[in-house]
Structure formats: C-alpha cells, structure tokens
Design a protein around this nucleic acid. Structure first.
Lengths: 200, 200
DNA sequence: TAGATTGTTAATCGATTAACAATC
DNA sequence: TAGATTGTTAATCGATTAACAATC
C-alpha cells in the first residue's frame, strides 16, 4: 500500500505549485518545491518517482503537468463525496467547513443517534444511523468521517467497513481495528493541543 | 527534546488507564495498555522508562501512580490557558469545543483582523491582534492555536514566538519556520480527508 | 560541450520491536 | 522458589537523506 505520509506531502506540493504558477513560473526544480514545503529535494524526487511523475534532467518539472497528475491522484476533477457519522461539536463544525466546499468535497449527509438532530437546521441533511446503508449505496460513498464519542467509535467503524467504506477520517480517540485494505487517518484535536502543555 | 509521538501516546495511555480503573483494576501490565491503545508492550515500557515511570517486576504498573504522574506531565492539575489567532470557521469551532473545556483547557481569547468579530457573539472575547501582547503577558500564556489563512500563517507565528509562545497548534497549511526550542503540532483537516480520496 | 538536475541505489537515521538479564 | 514481568540493550525496520551515474 501507498505511503500515507507521501500522499499528504503531495497535497502540500500542490499548494506550493499553485503559488509558483501564480508567480508566473512554468517549471520548478525539486529544491524549489522542497524548500517551500519544508522537505528535502531528495524527498520531493523520491515522492515523484514513486508515483511515476517525470521531470526533465535539465528543465526540472513542468508545473501544469504536475498539477494535472496530482489532481488525478486525488480525483479532484469529479465531485468527491463523504458522509459524517456523529453530529456533535466536531461533526457540526466540519459540515460548515469552507475548506472542504472550496475543494469540491461534498458532505452528502450526517448521521446521529439523537432524533433531535434530524431537523433541517444544519447545512447538510442529518439522518438516523439506520439510513447509512441506503445513503452509502445510493451515492457509492467510499469515504467517511467518524466524529462520535469514544464508546461508539469501533462499532461505527465496523458498520462503515461492512458497507464498503475504504477510507476513514477518525476524530474519536479510539485505535480502530480495521481490515488491512482500509485506511484510517487519525485526528485527535485534544491530544494535539494538550501535548503542548508539556512545554509550559 | 522529547519525542512528540510518545507524548501523544501518553495521552492515549491516560484514557486507557481511566477505563481500566473504572473496571475496578488497580494495576496494569504493559501488554494490557499496549493492546488497548494499539501499540506493542515494548513501546509502552520504553515510553514509561523514558519519562521515569516505574513499575514492579511482578505486579506491573500502579494505575493511580501512572495517572498522577501523567497528569503532572501535562499540567492537568492547574488551569491550562491558550489563545486562538484567527476566528474563522476553525477558530470559532474550537472555541466551542467541549473536549477542551472538559479537560480544563481554557481558551482565554481569540484574535482576528476583522473588527466585525470583536462583538460579544462568541464563547470567548475576541480582540484585535494588536492586543495579543497584552493578553499573553497578563496571563503568562505559552501555548497558542494558529487558525488563520495560509498567507498569514508565518507572520502570525513569528509574532507569537517573539511574545514568548513555546507551543503552537497550527491549522494553517503552511510549514512554519520556528526556532528549535519551539514545538509546532500540525493539523491539516483538508489534507487528512483529501488524501483518502486516493483510494476511491 | 559543460553544467545542472533528475532518478535511483546505497547509507544513514530514528523509531519500533525483539531479546533477555534482572528481579519481584 | 518458579514464573512472570519489567527495564534496557541490541536488532530490525521503514523512512529519509546522501551520493552519484545518467542525461538533457
């Protein structure tokens, strides 16, 4: 399986490439990108070669070509759909997050156990978790965000996997057990902040 | 400097220890903790020994003692104060985040360039960035959250460092250049989600 | 061409895991 | 005591970096 870290670097390369393009550049060298993103030039070349991105031994890399290929890697040309399970604090914030909308990531629906949340007051429709299967099948969803409390994390994860979800962004503070073809990215906001108090 | 990854594991050990305690246990072995948190028993023992946490060669580790020591590492006994720079979508969500409040992390104030945000409509007071110095000095703040757009990330970071901030939680998609005694934790929600579409 | 940069193999580095002596 | 677990040193592993031949 592909290196998750390098995938995330590609998204940073992309931002950097757009910057260079705006400045009028058409080509970049590995050390230009590396410096801007904060990695070595070797890392950039290694990442590119792993994904088959080719440069020219004199002229460096063509920005347009790189951007086009990176866009393909992340399916940026189509609409990218995702669902959220758990409409608490984090779930609600994410469904309003501009950073997703601006990058044609569509949050199709949210799911929650609490019927009080099925009203129309959110930016996305919110359903009972019973309807997960229906929504996933109808839209061929492959990607989901788990934003439920600790106790429900693994159970929700198991459901999602059984419904064909391949990639999970997990905000619950649980180490999820998943089959090896499923990818989980962990975000634990509390730990990221709290660990800094060590230095206080 | 201390390993950031191991610091974050300690916070997971803590959650796990609390679970064991609720179940009536007073002692745990390294393999109990490891299994629950999703790391090896060797990792647990290594982490503990790096921070000087001692167990008994027969009875394992004392839960109360571990929790007490971990609480000290993260200054959990006092009030832990932090500020947010950038009251956009992410900043607003964070200042309502229960996960912080429940763990005596206090967001003292938010800062933003937009005067329209200085009103009283948020859970925390929001000021002009001009007032950062005053607030940081008065409260002896050492920890800050950067939630500004890309273009402002580095500038805000430089300001914070010059005002004595030691730990930064950075939500802006920028590789921050900081002196080596400053610790930056990166959270890039968009990258974490978008990288999953590779598997779609 | 000469110089510069890519692409890839080898070396390094850091973190994780294995092994095992110490010992409760 | 015998058995089990810690604490730590050595081995492994994976990812990053260095080196350099290929070549534009």
């Amino acid at each position: 399986m592909v290196n998750q870290k390098s995938l995330k670097r590609f998204l940073q390369y992309r931002l950097s490439l757009i910057k260079f393009q705006r400045l009028g550049f058409e080509k970049v060298f590995s050390y230009n990108l590396g410096k801007d993103v904060g990695v070595t030039a070797e890392q950039v070349r290694k990442d590119f070669s792993m994904f088959g991105l080719k440069g020219s031994k004199r002229g460096g890399y063509d920005i347009k070509y790189l951007l086009k290929t990176i866009d393909e890697i992340f399916k940026r040309n189509g609409e990218r759909q995702v669902i959220i399970i758990g409409m608490g604090n984090i779930g609600q914030a994410l469904c309003n997050y501009q950073g997703f909308k601006e990058n044609n990531i569509i949050i199709v629906a949210g799911f929650d156990l609490d019927p009080a949340k099925y009203s129309k007051k959110y930016a996305i429709p919110v359903h009972s978790t019973d309807k997960m299967e229906e929504v996933i099948k109808k839209n061929s969803i492959r990607t989901a965000i788990i934003a439920v409390p600790e106790f429900a994390g693994q159970e929700v994860c198991d459901q999602l996997v059984s419904l064909g979800i391949k990639g999970i962004l997990n905000f619950s503070p649980v180490n999820l057990k998943v089959p090896e073809d499923i990818v989980v990215n962990y975000v634990n906001l509390r730990n990221e902040l709290e660990s800094l108090f060590y230095y206080t």
